[in-house]
Computed example of a mutant assay.
Amino acid sequence: MFNVDNHKCIGCGLCIEDCFVKDISIIDNKAFIKNKDCIKCGHCIAICPTNAISTDDYNMNEVINYDEDTFNINSENLLNFIRFRRTIRKFKDKEVEPEKLLKIIEAGRYTPTASNLQNVSYIVVREKINELRELVLESLNNLGEEIIKTSKNELEIKYAKSWKLMYKIFKRNPQKQDNLFFFSKNIIIITSPNDLNAGLASTNLELMCNALGLGALYSGFFILASHNSHKIKEFLNLKADEKIINCIVIGYPDVKYLRTVPRKEPSIKWL
């Protein structure tokens, strides 16, 4: 529940004005939270000028007061940071520290979700990454065989042949080549019943990777394989409502980029 400390509350009404679901009222010149329609977004905690509002649903020790020096990001620096990020497919033979992986997930944890459902979950694969790699390549190989038999799309057939070759190389020598995880030692799988929530979280995860000096790759091959394999879902021990939305391959980059790259002009409609 969300609660108001009447000794601190000054009845200013700011929390009422900012409460989207209108779950707060004024009684005897003090804010009163009904906890009926509350979605636990925490806006009331964030906006209260006297720090009078708290909740026992979350850990209040995580609350940090706003500080201009440490909370603000220069807009040009942020834009350049986004422009400079690159997909990494070459990683050093170096473990990513667990505390960095937790910090990456923390960036996802604080990403907004529809109705504040906070229904995004994360699976970190480290020790069993090679077992998962084999399952993914097996699934891609099976999918590739089916595509070659049935498809007339040249691009699909091209990918299908590459998947079959990847699986063949892996079965001969798993250490020779890895065009799936690129010998990364860490992946984070993002799951959610809501595609948008998981997609938004994934973006923040990847930005935090770059901020920590790490490299990241969104693995579309993994997503495709996982959607066509019960073995992968069983291996990951997914719950009934957990849907694999994204997979981020993470590691220390073994490549150094020196500049940004050009992009298409944006497609914009001004109405």
Rank of each mutant, 00 (worst) to 15 (best):
I189G: 00
R89N: 12
K40D: 10
I53Q: 01
M1F: 09
N153I: 13
K243N: 14
D178G: 09
I45R: 14
E106M: 04
H7C: 08
K36S: 08
I47E: 06
N130Q: 15
F84G: 11
E131K: 06
P266E: 15
N130E: 15
L214H: 03
K22W: 04
C41S: 10
S219T: 04
Y167M: 01
K185M: 03
K239Y: 07
T111V: 06
I73D: 13
I250K: 01
Y58H: 13
K40N: 12
Y122K: 14
F181A: 00
D254G: 03
T260G: 05
I223Q: 05
I187M: 04
K164I: 10
D18G: 15
I73A: 14
K269A: 05
D23K: 00
K269C: 08
S162I: 14
K34W: 12
K164Q: 06
T111M: 04
K34I: 11
V249C: 01
K233I: 03
D241N: 15
V136E: 00
F84D: 13
L214C: 04
P98M: 11
L102I: 08
F222Y: 05
I39P: 10
E138C: 06
D28P: 08
E95L: 08
K185A: 03
G215M: 01
Q177F: 07
V4H: 01
G42F: 12
N29Y: 07
I250Q: 00
D23L: 00
I268K: 06
I24M: 03
R85T: 07
F81M: 14
L137I: 07
C247M: 09
N6P: 11
L117V: 02
C38Q: 07
S75M: 09
C12A: 13
G108W: 04
W163A: 03
N197G: 02
Y122T: 11
C247F: 08
I39L: 12
L238Y: 03
L180K: 03
F183H: 05
L137R: 00
K100Q: 10
L258F: 14
D37N: 08
N65G: 08
L205H: 05
I129G: 09
A31F: 05
D28W: 10
K264C: 12
S54D: 01
R263I: 08
I147Q: 01
E97Q: 07
P112R: 14
L155K: 05
C9P: 05
C247G: 07
I148A: 10
Y167I: 05
P266C: 15
Y218K: 12
I24Y: 01
T50Q: 14
C15R: 05
C209D: 04
L196E: 13
S121A: 13
N179K: 06
R83H: 10
E206H: 00
K171M: 12
T87H: 01
D18V: 11
